[in-house]
Simulated assay, not measured.
Amino acid sequence: MTLQAWWLFLVTVSLLSATPGPNMMHALTRSVQVGFRRSTFAMAGCISALLLALVLSVIGIGAVLVAEPRLFSAIRYLGAAYLIYLGIKAWRARDGVGLAREETPSRQESGLSLYRTGFLVGISNPKLLLFAAAFFPQFIDHHRPVLPQFAILVVTYLCSDCFWMSLYGLGGRSLSRFLERASVRRAFNRLTGILFVAFGIAILRARA
């Protein structure tokens, strides 16, 4: 892999990471809800899911999903259902305090719970496996050792996602100052709910 190919990969994944999606929206809403510092547990869950998906794609699981459309469909439906569930939960939050209210110490979610939810959000889109399986080889020089090149691409992707997720999280911390009014919190929760449901529907409508 040449330096030029790496730069092209970096620019491409940076644009992909910057685009609002389930992971970035989850980082933002968790930061609003529990504060930036504790939202890093959720971000770590999203990043862990991304790492797992990239590693699985490298070892060929993406090809398996292509060969087994029923398995892919089952995973896709589960992932979409989870995103839609999060959207409904946000929409129905009582008095608009669900995702947009910092929790009191006695009701704080544990770091493990935040991490687990972030991981489930991150792993809920199985098309990431197919994307990585098809996208990564475009930047690999097969005349050189392949594994070190894959490692560089995976680390680059993870660093890009961490950077943008942190920016979204910091944006959530700033946004929380404007969510003191119940009506504004309610609007924010419902907008978040609509976006998560839209992500879920998009996964259902997308062709494998």
Rank of each mutant, 00 (worst) to 15 (best):
I203T: 05
L78N: 05
T40Y: 12
R185I: 03
P148N: 13
Y77K: 03
Y77W: 14
V64H: 12
L15S: 06
A206F: 03
C162H: 10
F139A: 09
L86A: 11
Y157A: 11
L195H: 07
W91Q: 04
R205S: 12
S106E: 13
L78M: 11
G193L: 12
L130I: 08
E102N: 03
W91C: 12
R101H: 00
G60T: 07
R144S: 14
C162P: 02
V64A: 14
I47C: 06
V184G: 01
I88C: 01
A90T: 06
A198G: 09
R92S: 08
R76I: 00
Q108C: 05
L28E: 05
Y85F: 12
A81I: 12
A42K: 04
L120F: 13
E109Q: 09
L78I: 14
L52D: 06
S176M: 06
H26T: 15
T117M: 14
S48I: 06
T2M: 04
N125Y: 05
W164C: 10
F188I: 02
S73Y: 04
L153K: 11
Y157P: 00
F178H: 12
I152R: 06
L120C: 08
R116Q: 11
P69I: 03
F196T: 05
Q138C: 02
A80N: 04
A134Y: 11
A151T: 13
A132Q: 00
G60N: 08
F41Q: 03
E180G: 13
V197L: 13
Q4P: 06
V154W: 07
L158M: 14
W164L: 15
V121E: 01
R186K: 05
I140K: 00
A134D: 10
A74H: 04
R173Q: 13
A53G: 06
A53K: 02
W7F: 15
L112Q: 07
L175E: 09
R205D: 07
G96T: 02
V66D: 08
S14C: 14
L128T: 04
S17C: 15
L10M: 13
A81M: 14
V121P: 03
A198E: 07
A208H: 04
L8C: 09
V32S: 00
S124P: 01
G172D: 04
L128H: 07
T19D: 00
S166M: 13
R92H: 05
R101D: 02
H26K: 11
V154T: 15
A134F: 14
T29Q: 12
F41G: 00
P20C: 13
V97M: 12
W6C: 02
F136Q: 08
Y168E: 05
E103G: 01
S106D: 13
S31C: 10
E180M: 10
V58Q: 09
S110V: 05
P148M: 09
T192Y: 01
A42E: 07
F163A: 04
Y77V: 05
G21T: 10
A80W: 10
L99I: 10
R37C: 07
N189L: 09
V64G: 12
L114A: 03
M25V: 07
